[in-house]
Design a protein around this nucleic acid. Structure first.
Length: 364
DNA sequence: CGTGTTTGACCGGCGC
DNA sequence: GCGCCGGTCAAACACG
Protein backbone atom coordinates (compact mmCIF):
# COMPACT_ATOMS: atom_id res chain seq x y z
CA UNK A 1 0.00 0.00 0.00
CA UNK A 2 1.40 3.28 -1.05
CA UNK A 3 1.29 6.04 1.45
CA UNK A 4 1.14 9.71 0.88
CA UNK A 5 4.57 11.08 0.77
CA UNK A 6 5.92 13.40 3.34
CA UNK A 7 5.64 16.20 0.88
CA UNK A 8 2.02 15.47 0.38
CA UNK A 9 1.54 15.34 4.06
CA UNK A 10 2.96 18.81 4.17
CA UNK A 11 0.80 19.97 1.33
CA UNK A 12 -2.36 18.56 2.75
CA UNK A 13 -3.22 20.28 5.97
CA UNK A 14 -3.23 17.83 8.80
CA UNK A 15 -6.48 17.20 10.56
CA UNK A 16 -7.13 19.23 13.64
CA UNK A 17 -6.15 17.60 16.90
CA UNK A 18 -8.88 15.38 18.23
CA UNK A 19 -10.77 16.65 21.23
CA UNK A 20 -9.66 13.70 23.26
CA UNK A 21 -7.78 10.48 23.01
CA UNK A 22 -10.92 8.43 22.92
CA UNK A 23 -12.24 10.42 20.03
CA UNK A 24 -8.96 9.94 18.25
CA UNK A 25 -9.14 6.24 18.80
CA UNK A 26 -12.66 6.10 17.51
CA UNK A 27 -11.78 8.16 14.49
CA UNK A 28 -9.07 5.78 13.54
CA UNK A 29 -11.22 2.81 14.12
CA UNK A 30 -12.79 0.95 11.27
CA UNK A 31 -15.06 -0.55 13.81
CA UNK A 32 -16.34 2.86 14.62
CA UNK A 33 -16.94 3.58 10.98
CA UNK A 34 -18.94 0.41 10.62
CA UNK A 35 -20.93 1.28 13.67
CA UNK A 36 -21.64 4.68 12.28
CA UNK A 37 -22.94 3.14 9.12
CA UNK A 38 -25.32 0.96 11.05
CA UNK A 39 -26.47 3.48 13.57
CA UNK A 40 -30.12 3.52 14.37
CA UNK A 41 -32.25 6.41 15.45
CA UNK A 42 -31.24 6.06 19.04
CA UNK A 43 -27.74 6.97 18.15
CA UNK A 44 -28.85 10.43 17.25
CA UNK A 45 -30.86 11.18 20.32
CA UNK A 46 -32.79 14.39 20.00
CA UNK A 47 -32.35 14.63 16.30
CA UNK A 48 -34.14 11.34 15.82
CA UNK A 49 -36.85 12.30 18.19
CA UNK A 50 -37.74 15.69 16.80
CA UNK A 51 -40.06 14.17 14.29
CA UNK A 52 -38.50 15.76 11.25
CA UNK A 53 -38.36 12.43 9.53
CA UNK A 54 -35.92 10.22 7.81
CA UNK A 55 -34.49 13.05 5.79
CA UNK A 56 -33.30 14.91 8.80
CA UNK A 57 -31.96 11.74 10.31
CA UNK A 58 -30.07 11.06 7.16
CA UNK A 59 -28.64 14.53 7.17
CA UNK A 60 -27.69 14.20 10.75
CA UNK A 61 -26.14 10.85 10.18
CA UNK A 62 -24.23 12.04 7.20
CA UNK A 63 -23.01 15.16 8.93
CA UNK A 64 -22.05 13.26 11.99
CA UNK A 65 -20.38 10.61 9.96
CA UNK A 66 -18.36 13.11 8.03
CA UNK A 67 -17.42 15.18 11.00
CA UNK A 68 -16.40 12.10 12.84
CA UNK A 69 -14.60 9.84 10.43
CA UNK A 70 -13.42 12.41 7.92
CA UNK A 71 -11.34 15.09 9.45
CA UNK A 72 -10.66 16.83 6.18
CA UNK A 73 -12.78 19.47 4.53
CA UNK A 74 -16.20 18.56 3.28
CA UNK A 75 -18.50 19.98 0.66
CA UNK A 76 -20.00 22.33 3.17
CA UNK A 77 -16.53 23.24 4.30
CA UNK A 78 -15.67 24.20 0.78
CA UNK A 79 -18.81 26.22 0.60
CA UNK A 80 -17.82 27.93 3.77
CA UNK A 81 -14.35 28.49 2.42
CA UNK A 82 -15.81 29.91 -0.74
CA UNK A 83 -17.76 32.40 1.25
CA UNK A 84 -14.91 33.10 3.60
CA UNK A 85 -14.11 36.76 3.64
CA UNK A 86 -11.80 37.02 6.57
CA UNK A 87 -8.99 39.53 6.57
CA UNK A 88 -6.37 36.84 6.72
CA UNK A 89 -5.58 36.95 3.07
CA UNK A 90 -2.81 34.40 3.38
CA UNK A 91 -4.99 31.84 4.95
CA UNK A 92 -5.01 28.63 3.06
CA UNK A 93 -8.36 27.71 1.59
CA UNK A 94 -8.38 24.29 3.12
CA UNK A 95 -7.41 25.78 6.40
CA UNK A 96 -10.27 28.15 6.01
CA UNK A 97 -12.47 25.20 5.35
CA UNK A 98 -11.20 23.51 8.43
CA UNK A 99 -11.78 26.60 10.49
CA UNK A 100 -15.22 26.96 9.06
CA UNK A 101 -16.15 23.66 10.60
CA UNK A 102 -15.75 25.09 14.04
CA UNK A 103 -17.10 28.54 13.57
CA UNK A 104 -20.35 30.05 12.43
CA UNK A 105 -20.50 30.99 8.77
CA UNK A 106 -19.22 34.48 8.12
CA UNK A 107 -21.15 37.04 6.12
CA UNK A 108 -21.14 36.20 2.46
CA UNK A 109 -19.34 38.78 0.42
CA UNK A 110 -18.37 36.85 -2.61
CA UNK A 111 -15.31 37.60 -4.66
CA UNK A 112 -14.82 34.94 -7.33
CA UNK A 113 -11.30 35.87 -8.25
CA UNK A 114 -10.25 36.00 -4.67
CA UNK A 115 -11.90 32.75 -3.86
CA UNK A 116 -10.51 30.95 -6.84
CA UNK A 117 -7.05 32.15 -6.05
CA UNK A 118 -7.52 31.15 -2.48
CA UNK A 119 -8.61 27.73 -3.58
CA UNK A 120 -5.34 27.15 -5.30
CA UNK A 121 -3.42 24.56 -3.45
CA UNK A 122 -0.81 21.96 -4.09
CA UNK A 123 -0.58 18.45 -2.99
CA UNK A 124 1.75 15.72 -4.05
CA UNK A 125 0.77 12.16 -4.57
CA UNK A 126 2.93 9.12 -4.94
CA UNK A 127 1.72 7.03 -7.81
CA UNK A 128 2.85 3.60 -8.77
CA UNK A 129 3.32 2.82 -12.40
CA UNK A 130 2.11 -0.39 -13.88
CA UNK A 131 4.30 -3.26 -14.88
CA UNK A 132 4.69 -2.31 -18.51
CA UNK A 133 6.18 1.00 -17.55
CA UNK A 134 3.10 2.97 -18.42
CA UNK A 135 1.45 5.40 -16.12
CA UNK A 136 -1.86 4.51 -14.63
CA UNK A 137 -2.61 8.00 -13.54
CA UNK A 138 -6.18 7.59 -14.65
CA UNK A 139 -7.56 10.47 -12.69
CA UNK A 140 -10.43 10.96 -15.06
CA UNK A 141 -9.23 14.26 -16.38
CA UNK A 142 -7.67 15.09 -19.64
CA UNK A 143 -4.25 16.68 -19.45
CA UNK A 144 -2.18 18.45 -22.00
CA UNK A 145 1.55 18.51 -21.58
CA UNK A 146 2.99 21.97 -21.92
CA UNK A 147 6.51 21.56 -20.74
CA UNK A 148 9.23 19.37 -19.46
CA UNK A 149 12.19 20.34 -17.39
CA UNK A 150 15.19 18.56 -16.05
CA UNK A 151 15.39 19.24 -12.37
CA UNK A 152 18.60 19.81 -10.56
CA UNK A 153 19.80 16.91 -8.46
CA UNK A 154 17.24 14.71 -10.11
CA UNK A 155 18.06 12.33 -12.96
CA UNK A 156 14.47 12.34 -14.09
CA UNK A 157 12.82 15.22 -15.89
CA UNK A 158 9.65 16.79 -14.61
CA UNK A 159 6.70 17.05 -16.91
CA UNK A 160 4.14 19.80 -16.69
CA UNK A 161 0.52 19.18 -17.53
CA UNK A 162 -2.47 21.42 -17.73
CA UNK A 163 -6.12 20.46 -17.83
CA UNK A 164 -7.38 20.65 -21.38
CA UNK A 165 -10.55 22.37 -20.29
CA UNK A 166 -9.94 26.00 -21.23
CA UNK A 167 -11.87 27.22 -18.21
CA UNK A 168 -10.06 24.99 -15.79
CA UNK A 169 -6.87 26.08 -14.11
CA UNK A 170 -5.87 22.68 -12.83
CA UNK A 171 -2.29 21.67 -13.39
CA UNK A 172 -0.11 18.85 -12.41
CA UNK A 173 3.54 18.00 -12.44
CA UNK A 174 4.78 14.50 -12.91
CA UNK A 175 8.24 13.26 -12.18
CA UNK A 176 9.66 9.90 -11.42
CA UNK A 177 10.82 9.31 -7.91
CA UNK A 178 14.55 9.07 -7.64
CA UNK A 179 14.50 6.34 -5.06
CA UNK A 180 11.71 4.29 -6.59
CA UNK A 181 11.89 3.78 -10.30
CA UNK A 182 8.31 2.59 -10.53
CA UNK A 183 6.91 5.47 -8.58
CA UNK A 184 5.82 8.80 -9.90
CA UNK A 185 5.41 11.94 -7.92
CA UNK A 186 2.35 13.76 -9.11
CA UNK A 187 1.83 17.26 -7.82
CA UNK A 188 -1.63 18.67 -8.40
CA UNK A 189 -2.34 22.34 -8.35
CA UNK A 190 -5.61 24.14 -8.79
CA UNK A 191 -9.14 22.94 -9.11
CA UNK A 192 -11.08 21.12 -11.76
CA UNK A 193 -14.20 23.12 -12.42
CA UNK A 194 -15.84 20.48 -14.51
CA UNK A 195 -16.73 16.84 -14.70
CA UNK A 196 -14.17 14.18 -15.09
CA UNK A 197 -14.07 12.98 -18.65
CA UNK A 198 -14.78 9.45 -17.62
CA UNK A 199 -18.03 10.84 -16.32
CA UNK A 200 -18.96 11.84 -19.84
CA UNK A 201 -17.94 8.53 -21.18
CA UNK A 202 -20.19 6.60 -18.89
CA UNK A 203 -23.14 7.95 -20.72
CA UNK A 204 -21.50 7.82 -24.09
CA UNK A 205 -21.28 4.09 -24.50
CA UNK A 206 -17.62 3.91 -23.58
CA UNK A 207 -14.90 3.24 -26.05
CA UNK A 208 -12.37 5.86 -26.83
CA UNK A 209 -11.72 8.80 -24.65
CA UNK A 210 -13.50 12.11 -24.65
CA UNK A 211 -13.85 14.24 -27.70
CA UNK A 212 -10.40 13.37 -28.85
CA UNK A 213 -10.65 9.76 -27.94
CA UNK A 214 -9.19 8.69 -31.22
CA UNK A 215 -5.90 10.12 -30.23
CA UNK A 216 -3.21 7.90 -28.96
CA UNK A 217 -3.44 7.30 -25.26
CA UNK A 218 -0.10 8.44 -24.05
CA UNK A 219 0.80 9.45 -20.59
CA UNK A 220 -2.48 10.87 -19.43
CA UNK A 221 -5.43 9.49 -21.23
CA UNK A 222 -8.77 9.54 -19.52
CA UNK A 223 -9.79 6.01 -20.04
CA UNK A 224 -13.32 4.87 -19.53
CA UNK A 225 -14.21 2.59 -16.66
CA UNK A 226 -14.20 -0.33 -19.03
CA UNK A 227 -10.57 0.31 -19.77
CA UNK A 228 -9.93 0.63 -16.10
CA UNK A 229 -11.57 -2.66 -15.55
CA UNK A 230 -9.36 -4.27 -18.10
CA UNK A 231 -6.35 -2.66 -16.56
CA UNK A 232 -7.43 -3.87 -13.20
CA UNK A 233 -7.69 -7.36 -14.45
CA UNK A 234 -4.25 -7.16 -15.94
CA UNK A 235 -2.43 -5.78 -12.98
CA UNK A 236 -3.50 -5.75 -9.39
CA UNK A 237 -1.20 -2.86 -8.73
CA UNK A 238 -3.02 -0.56 -11.07
CA UNK A 239 -4.32 2.58 -9.62
CA UNK A 240 -7.96 3.38 -9.71
CA UNK A 241 -8.66 6.97 -9.08
CA UNK A 242 -11.83 7.98 -7.47
CA UNK A 243 -12.73 10.18 -10.33
CA UNK A 244 -12.42 7.24 -12.65
CA UNK A 245 -14.52 5.05 -10.49
CA UNK A 246 -17.80 6.73 -11.08
CA UNK A 247 -20.74 4.49 -11.31
CA UNK A 248 -24.01 5.00 -13.09
CA UNK A 249 -25.48 5.33 -9.67
CA UNK A 250 -23.21 8.23 -9.04
CA UNK A 251 -24.52 9.80 -12.16
CA UNK A 252 -27.94 9.34 -10.80
CA UNK A 253 -26.92 10.92 -7.57
CA UNK A 254 -25.43 13.85 -9.32
CA UNK A 255 -28.38 14.35 -11.54
CA UNK A 256 -30.61 14.28 -8.56
CA UNK A 257 -28.36 16.72 -6.85
CA UNK A 258 -28.33 18.98 -9.83
CA UNK A 259 -32.05 18.81 -10.01
CA UNK A 260 -32.30 20.05 -6.50
CA UNK A 261 -32.69 23.78 -5.95
CA UNK A 262 -30.46 23.29 -2.95
CA UNK A 263 -27.61 22.14 -5.10
CA UNK A 264 -24.98 23.88 -3.13
CA UNK A 265 -22.17 22.83 -5.37
CA UNK A 266 -24.01 24.19 -8.30
CA UNK A 267 -24.39 27.39 -6.44
CA UNK A 268 -20.73 27.39 -5.58
CA UNK A 269 -19.69 26.87 -9.15
CA UNK A 270 -22.12 29.36 -10.48
CA UNK A 271 -21.22 31.88 -7.86
CA UNK A 272 -17.58 31.36 -8.61
CA UNK A 273 -18.20 32.73 -12.03
CA UNK A 274 -17.61 29.45 -13.76
CA UNK A 275 -20.86 29.72 -15.60
CA UNK A 276 -21.76 32.36 -18.02
CA UNK A 277 -24.37 34.83 -17.01
CA UNK A 278 -27.05 33.05 -18.94
CA UNK A 279 -26.07 29.76 -17.44
CA UNK A 280 -26.23 31.20 -13.98
CA UNK A 281 -29.70 32.46 -14.60
CA UNK A 282 -30.78 29.14 -15.88
CA UNK A 283 -29.29 27.47 -12.89
CA UNK A 284 -31.04 29.85 -10.60
CA UNK A 285 -34.39 29.26 -12.20
CA UNK A 286 -34.14 26.20 -14.38
CA UNK A 287 -37.85 25.65 -14.63
CA UNK A 288 -38.26 28.95 -16.33
CA UNK A 289 -36.05 27.98 -19.19
CA UNK A 290 -35.96 24.30 -19.76
CA UNK A 291 -36.11 20.99 -18.07
CA UNK A 292 -33.37 19.84 -15.77
CA UNK A 293 -32.18 17.07 -18.00
CA UNK A 294 -31.37 19.41 -20.81
CA UNK A 295 -29.55 21.64 -18.41
CA UNK A 296 -27.50 18.76 -17.22
CA UNK A 297 -26.73 17.73 -20.74
CA UNK A 298 -25.64 21.21 -21.69
CA UNK A 299 -23.54 21.58 -18.64
CA UNK A 300 -21.88 18.30 -19.32
CA UNK A 301 -21.09 19.51 -22.77
CA UNK A 302 -19.64 22.64 -21.28
CA UNK A 303 -17.60 20.50 -18.98
CA UNK A 304 -18.60 22.47 -15.96
CA UNK A 305 -20.34 20.74 -13.17
CA UNK A 306 -19.92 19.55 -9.68
CA UNK A 307 -16.22 18.93 -9.72
CA UNK A 308 -15.51 22.20 -8.05
CA UNK A 309 -14.24 20.12 -5.19
CA UNK A 310 -10.62 19.26 -5.82
CA UNK A 311 -9.26 15.79 -5.68
CA UNK A 312 -7.67 16.85 -2.49
CA UNK A 313 -11.07 16.92 -0.95
CA UNK A 314 -12.72 14.21 -2.90
CA UNK A 315 -10.15 11.56 -2.24
CA UNK A 316 -6.55 12.21 -3.01
CA UNK A 317 -5.40 9.19 -1.07
CA UNK A 318 -7.01 6.99 -3.65
CA UNK A 319 -4.28 7.94 -6.01
CA UNK A 320 -1.67 6.80 -3.61
CA UNK A 321 -3.26 3.45 -3.29
CA UNK A 322 -1.67 0.58 -5.09
CA UNK A 323 -4.65 -1.64 -4.68
CA UNK A 324 -8.10 -1.51 -6.11
CA UNK A 325 -9.80 -2.35 -2.89
CA UNK A 326 -9.64 1.19 -1.66
CA UNK A 327 -12.00 2.18 -4.40
CA UNK A 328 -14.10 -0.86 -4.18
CA UNK A 329 -17.57 0.65 -4.24
CA UNK A 330 -17.19 2.69 -7.42
CA UNK A 331 -14.83 0.20 -8.94
CA UNK A 332 -17.29 -2.56 -8.38
CA UNK A 333 -20.04 -0.45 -9.81
CA UNK A 334 -17.95 0.41 -12.82
CA UNK A 335 -16.98 -3.18 -13.32
CA UNK A 336 -20.53 -4.33 -13.03
CA UNK A 337 -22.84 -1.51 -13.91
CA UNK A 338 -25.77 -3.85 -13.85
CA UNK A 339 -24.92 -5.21 -10.45
CA UNK A 340 -27.95 -4.42 -8.42
CA UNK A 341 -26.16 -4.98 -5.17
CA UNK A 342 -23.34 -2.61 -5.74
CA UNK A 343 -25.49 -0.05 -7.40
CA UNK A 344 -28.13 -0.17 -4.79
CA UNK A 345 -25.56 0.15 -2.09
CA UNK A 346 -23.94 3.01 -3.90
CA UNK A 347 -27.24 4.65 -4.54
CA UNK A 348 -28.98 3.66 -1.41
CA UNK A 349 -29.33 7.17 -0.08
CA UNK A 350 -30.83 9.57 -2.51
CA UNK A 351 -29.89 12.58 -0.60
CA UNK A 352 -29.48 16.22 -1.53
CA UNK A 353 -26.20 16.20 0.29
CA UNK A 354 -23.70 14.89 -2.14
CA UNK A 355 -21.80 12.47 -0.01
CA UNK A 356 -19.09 10.87 -1.99
CA UNK A 357 -18.99 7.46 -0.46
CA UNK A 358 -15.67 6.88 -2.09
CA UNK A 359 -14.26 9.40 0.35
CA UNK A 360 -15.65 7.53 3.25
CA UNK A 361 -14.83 4.11 1.95
CA UNK A 362 -11.25 5.07 1.33
CA UNK A 363 -10.50 6.78 4.56
CA UNK A 364 -9.67 3.48 6.13
C1' DC B 1 -6.13 18.74 -40.85
C1' DG B 2 -6.84 18.73 -35.97
C1' DT B 3 -4.82 17.59 -31.74
C1' DG B 4 -1.24 16.60 -28.65
C1' DT B 5 3.90 16.32 -27.70
C1' DT B 6 8.55 17.94 -27.84
C1' DT B 7 11.97 21.16 -26.80
C1' DG B 8 14.60 25.35 -26.79
C1' DA B 9 13.78 30.04 -25.35
C1' DC B 10 12.07 33.14 -22.18
C1' DC B 11 10.69 35.00 -17.70
C1' DG B 12 10.42 35.75 -12.78
C1' DG B 13 11.74 34.51 -8.11
C1' DC B 14 15.35 33.81 -5.04
C1' DG B 15 19.91 33.57 -2.93
C1' DC B 16 24.48 35.34 -2.83
C1' DG C 1 23.53 43.01 -10.08
C1' DC C 2 24.30 38.44 -11.32
C1' DG C 3 23.53 33.69 -11.89
C1' DC C 4 20.81 29.71 -10.90
C1' DC C 5 16.63 27.39 -11.05
C1' DG C 6 11.83 26.22 -11.77
C1' DG C 7 7.89 27.19 -14.46
C1' DT C 8 5.80 28.60 -18.80
C1' DC C 9 5.50 29.77 -23.69
C1' DA C 10 5.26 28.73 -28.40
C1' DA C 11 6.99 27.07 -32.77
C1' DA C 12 8.06 22.83 -34.81
C1' DC C 13 6.97 18.30 -35.13
C1' DA C 14 4.43 13.74 -34.81
C1' DC C 15 0.44 11.12 -35.20
C1' DG C 16 -4.02 9.30 -36.68
Amino acid sequence: MEELQGSSAAAVPPPPPPPDADESRRRSSKYYYCNMMTMNDDDFGDEAADGSGARRRQESMVNKLISTVYSGPTISDIESALSFTGTGGDQQPIAAAMDARNSPPPPVVFSPEKVLSKMENKYTLKVKTCGNGGLIAEDGYKWRKYGQKSIKNSPNPRSYYRCTNPRCNAKKQVERATDEADTLLVTYEGLHLHYTYSHFLLGGGGGGSSSTGSKKPKLHPCGPPAALQEAEEEDDHHLLLHSSCRSPAQDSQEQMLLSSPASSQHAAVAAAGCYGEEEEQQLAAPDEHRDNNSIIDDERMNGLLEDVVPLLVRRPACMSSSTTTSCSPPAAAAASPSSSSSVSAWNSNHHPYYIDMAILSNIF
